[in-house]
Each structure stands twice: as structure tokens, then as C-alpha cells.
Design a protein around this nucleic acid. Structure first.
Lengths: 221, 221
DNA sequence: GCATAATGTGACTACCTGGTCACAAAGATA
DNA sequence: TATCTTTGTGACCAGGTAGTCACATTATGC
């Protein structure tokens, strides 16, 4: 948790601090990210960081919960009852996830790193909450749909949830590998993570949902 | 490429060197892995490393191509013509992939890191060859099966290949997340990466293939 | 045995890191 | 204005890193 000093800080300074810190931790894993680089970029003294946060881990944890909260606000704003069936709902959730990404590229990049690339031992204990939350949410969705008879019940629920979670997150690497989207360049140029190739992105998401639908619908004997 | 000195080295010393270096690079990303730790573990002088390899990157590249070659040898030993249909063939390939993992846990862990967790800028240019090779191989398979009418043709081939690749590799995280397999502990105790819970693993693979089959088979209109 | 070549060594350099702390500056209160 | 509290500072510390190089040791060929 941030110290009092940081909470009392001028909001503009606070925002600037988070912006720069987030950029550093989005571009490098915990171990490689450098407090020294952050203070150089901000033009402040190193001691200030330790007036704001206990240590590097404290800062990282704050960034993490901050980004998670922002992302959650995008997801929960879509409500199941507003959609006729699960897959249109899912597509809407996905679209909102993309909005999150468009509007918070650094947050998105940071969470992607935390969820998939991070391996620094110092943060090991804190890595799974993100994936756990995601699959727990999907499990609830899937169970509800299974009750409706729109999703197969012949395979273990955790496997289905894992399957959806993995595929959902893989869109990022799909864009990178197949469409040659260059995340680093997009960010360097201030564009959103996926750049501006929205048609290709939408098409990829639609194709992906086609595959998910086919995989998850109740199977004929 | 290793220097002459390393190639001329006593095979036992050479093997021991690779073993220790691989362990280090399997447990930490490029930037964090430490030459100092390697030489301490080996009980040799640091200078020796630089008699064997140009620099850290040279060593990393050698480990990478070494592990890739080992893994490839497991995969290509399975021949399509020995199996009646694609999915039994795929299951056999997968089983061989698991053999690779059982018999070369550090290699497996290192390649997993290279393919998914690595983000050190120094090795950025070399990261994609692995994924590229995998999806290229899958693309060839899929195209052949599409010609037989056993795999759908209404979605772009690269999407299908990416889909299969992602799901195939996700088995690792599936075991970790759902079955609580602890890779680090297994390796520390000298067990294979997936531990000894082979039944659970086999079952997960079968379930996964069920999902892939359902997703990829030609769809009724 | 002796000279030459190949291999092994570890103190050393230059540079980076997270974190500290005595001090300085600025704000607030009286 | 004078005092007290909060915020900001940056030289400094201990500890880590990759890579070097003059030297010691060992192996090889004659």
C-alpha cells in the first residue's frame, strides 16, 4: 500500500508518477524494471520513491491492483441480461476488453506481462490472482449456460474455463504472429496496443468465437 | 556458435557444462540468468566460459538450438502414414512431446520460457523462430487434412494453426492451474516437469483433443 | 627433456541495482 | 517572524552483473 505521503500528493504529480512507473513495469519484468530509470525519467530524487512506497514490491502491487480495478470496471459494465444469447454477450465483453486496451495500453500491457510473462521470484506469490479471477468468472458463465443446455457438459468444467481463458488471451499473440502487429512500436508511437488495424482485429475475434462455439456447443453422439 | 575450445572439450565436461547452464537459463530469463552463478555451481573460473563462448548471448543461442534439436527429434519420429487418421496421429505426436518432457525436463522448461516468458531485449530477435516453426508445421498438417475434407475450410488457415498451437502449449499451464502441478518443485526433486500424475495428464490431453476436434471439424451449415 | 600450444584462472574493471539517511527546502501554524 | 511538520534530495552503501587479461597450469609434439 502507498504511504500517506503518496496519497496526499498533488493529483497531477501522482498521475504522472503512476504513468511513468507503469511504463517501466510494462516494458520490463519486476526484476529488470528499474527504480533508477523511473526517477531519472520523472526528474525527481530516488529518495522520493521511498517516501511514497515501502519498496519496489509495494509499488508493483499498487500498480497491479490499480490496473486490475480499471480493467474490471470495463468488464462488469456489460450485463448478461442485456444480450439474447451467450455468444453475443461474450462478443460484447470482448469488445469492451478491447476498449480497455485501446484506452489504457500501458495498463493492458502490464497486466499481460503479469499474467503471462512474469517470472521474478519476488512476485511469484501474487501472480495467479489474475488468472484465477478470470477463470472463476468464466466458470460461472459456463455453468449458467450449461444449465440452459447451450454448452456441452461431457467435459470437466475447469477444462472448459481454461480453454476459453487461454483462447481469449491468445488474441494478443495472434495479432502479433499473424497480422504482424508490433506492440512495442505502437506503444512507442503512442498508439493503442493493437494499433489501428481494427477490422483485422474484429475479424480475428469473430473467427476465434466461431472456433469456441464449435468446440463448446453440445456434441451430437 | 561455441568456440573450438568448447567443441574439443572432454564430452563429460561438456555435458556437465550444458546441464548447469541449461538449469540456470531454464530458471531465469536471459537478463536475470547469471554467468557468475553458473561458474560457481560448476566450480570453474569465469574466464573459462569466455573460452567456450563469445558471450552470454552466444551461450544462450547454443542452448536454444540444442534444445530445439532434441525436441524436433522426438516429434519427427512420429510419421503420419503410420496412423489411420489425423487425430490419432496428433495424439501420438503429443504423447511423444510428453516423452520429450519426461526425459528432458530442463530442455522443456527452457523452451517454454523462450517461447512464452522471455522478454529480454537482447534476445528479442531470436524469439519467434520457435513459434514460427511450430505453426508452420501445423499449417502443413492442417492443409493436408483439409484436402481430405476432415478439417473445416471456412476459416483462415493461420487462425487454425495458431489455435492448435496455443492449445497444445497451454497444457502446461492447464496442469499447473487446474491440477496444481508444481513445476518448480518437480524439477527441484528431479522429477519430470509434469510430475508423476500421468493419468491426469493423459486425461487432460484427451479432453483437449476432444475440444480441438469439435472446433476444427467441418461445420454443418 | 624441452619448447610450444592449448586450456584454466580469478582478481579486476566498469557499470548497474535497491535502498538509506543526514540534510535542505517548503508549508503550515502560531 | 519563529517554530514545527511535511516533503524533497542525492551522495553514498552493499551487493550484484558481464566481460577482460596477465598469468599459471596442463597437454602435445619433437
Amino acid at each position: 500500500m502507498p504511504k500517506e505521503t503518496f496519497i496526499n500528493l498533488d493529483p497531477q504529480k501522482q498521475a504522472r508518477f503512476l504513468e511513468v512507473a507503469l511504463e517501466e513495469f510494462a516494458n520490463s519484468d519486476f526484476q529488470t524494471a528499474s527504480i533508477t530509470r523511473i526517477v531519472k525519467e520523472l526528474g525527481i530524487a530516488k529518495g522520493s520513491v521511498y517516501q511514497y512506497f515501502e519498496d519496489k514490491l509495494d509499488l508493483w502491487l499498487h500498480l497491479k491492483s490499480h490496473c486490475e480495478q480499471v480493467k474490471r470496471s470495463y468488464i462488469v459494465s456489460v450485463r448478461r441480461e442485456d444480450y439474447p444469447d451467450f455468444w453475443t454477450y461474450y462478443e460484447a465483453v470482448y469488445a469492451n476488453g478491447l476498449h480497455f486496451d485501446l484506452e489504457n495500453p500501458r495498463c493492458s500491457q502490464f497486466l499481460y506481462r503479469v499474467g503471462f510473462k512474469e517470472s521474478s521470484p519476488q512476485v511469484q506469490p501474487y501472480l495467479n490472482s489474475w488468472k484465477d479471477q478470470g477463470t472463476a468468472m468464466l466458470s460461472r458463465w459456463i455453468a449458467a449456460e450449461q444449465a440452459n443446455g447451450t454448452i456441452r457438459t461431457d467435459l470437466p468444467l475447469p477444462i472448459l474455463a481454461h480453454f476459453m481463458f487461454t483462447m481469449g488471451l491468445s488474441v494478443a499473440s495472434l495479432m502479433h504472429d499473424i497480422y504482424g502487429v508490433d506492440f512495442d512500436r505502437n506503444l512507442a508511437e503512442g498508439k493503442p496496443l493493437f494499433g489501428l488495424e481494427n477490422e483485422a482485429l474484429q475479424a480475428a475475434v469473430r473467427d476465434l468465437i466461431q472456433l469456441l462455439k464449435a468446440a463448446l456447443k453440445p456434441q451430437a453422439l
